[in-house]
Design a protein around this nucleic acid. Sequence first.
DNA 1: GTGGTCTAGACCACT
DNA 2: GTGGTCTAGACCACA
Lengths: 128, 128, 128, 128
Amino acid sequence: MRGISISNKSNKPIYQQLFEQISSQILKGELESDFNLPAIRTAAKELRISIITVKKAWEKLERDGLIYSVAGKGCFISDLSNNELGNKRTNIIRKQMLKDLLFYKNLGISEDEIIKLVKELYSKVLSC
Amino acid sequence: MRGISISNKSNKPIYQQLFEQISSQILKGELESDFNLPAIRTAAKELRISIITVKKAWEKLERDGLIYSVAGKGCFISDLSNNELGNKRTNIIRKQMLKDLLFYKNLGISEDEIIKLVKELYSKVLSC
Amino acid sequence: MRGISISNKSNKPIYQQLFEQISSQILKGELESDFNLPAIRTAAKELRISIITVKKAWEKLERDGLIYSVAGKGCFISDLSNNELGNKRTNIIRKQMLKDLLFYKNLGISEDEIIKLVKELYSKVLSC
Amino acid sequence: MRGISISNKSNKPIYQQLFEQISSQILKGELESDFNLPAIRTAAKELRISIITVKKAWEKLERDGLIYSVAGKGCFISDLSNNELGNKRTNIIRKQMLKDLLFYKNLGISEDEIIKLVKELYSKVLSC
DNA sequence: GTGGTCTAGACCACT
DNA sequence: GTGGTCTAGACCACA
């Protein structure tokens, strides 16, 4: 479970944090296709969270077509072509961006103001 | 209650929707300072939600210093100087922007890509 | 109504603010005995508050023996000897001090710490 | 719920009493960080007050950063460094002290008089 | 009339 | 089990 960190103090539910971080890794191409995801029990133990919580995250990943599960064998990263990967990624991003822009627009912020802020703050954000 | 719309279907709690919309109106300077907010009971009736739910939103507004309430008289818009207003607004925006940029950065999106998307999508968003 | 200022934004009820300020003036000997308090209607008009609110403050002052009212003539400052004045003042102060010290003691603050703070902060307080 | 006592007769609202007593315990370092606060329902039952009233106190504690709550798991004491704890404590105390000193100054009491009273009365106060 | 507080009881998502 | 949200209905102090 490289690069996964769970925080109890976050407002986001744990299964959501797990889902977001793994799907982000997949979409960035950091996980090879047909590679094994850790077994639910293993992941739960390692991250010190409930099995049910891990299962919920895995289910969400499967529902989004990012992984597939084989009974008795485990879960695997889906074999997406670069095209499909790109599409999924783009969809997620655009959907989120529309939500974000709505928030800013409702506060009366102009396009220019937003771009200025992006330029100012982007480098200050520590991705994790 | 001009321009307030509540949706039961939203993921956001009702009190949060109410809080966001009113605080946005205040931060945009659409509501005069020291002017009356509708009485809790009136607002509740008008929006067809519980008194308690309205009160929760009002409490959040008061906690943020955007309104003040006087028992027996009502609730009023705080008289913030333009400076204070601007500061509050800026703080809220920057805080949100940092959160948003973290999300994009975690998906491996570059600064340029974000700006491109902002330019493409900003005009398509309908503020409300 | 010299030196009286009422704030809507205070947590204290208005009648309480009025009571405290007038009783403080009396206890400090700033108002001569047997002198007229302003008529309720006058005070209410001047301070732009409700007659009922003024009446409540006057009643509290009378209950504490600081003023007396004569039907048809008005309200007057009680004729307290210096002794009585001193006693009333001392009682009020000691009662308040015990309450305050309880608060500090419950936070684990020592006598020395309190005295240090009093020395540091006393001059910074603007009495009004 | 060690050392918590609620009085219906007090002028202070119940949730406020609860808030003050628990925050005092936290600020005094009597509760270990990341340790469980009792569940809302448990505390309510034990203290024989409404769940809502307990929740209100817990919310106030969370707003002040003294505890954090995790849905489905419970509420926990924030792990403040000694520095942060000290700062929070100092801020609360100074704020209260300024309020108290204003009261005394308005009655015309000198710094020396206050200190004399503190010395006389401090030991007579029973902290609880 | 107003807001402030307290109550009981319900449903939900999360663990 | 937990906390988060929403509900209806009550009493109080204040203006």
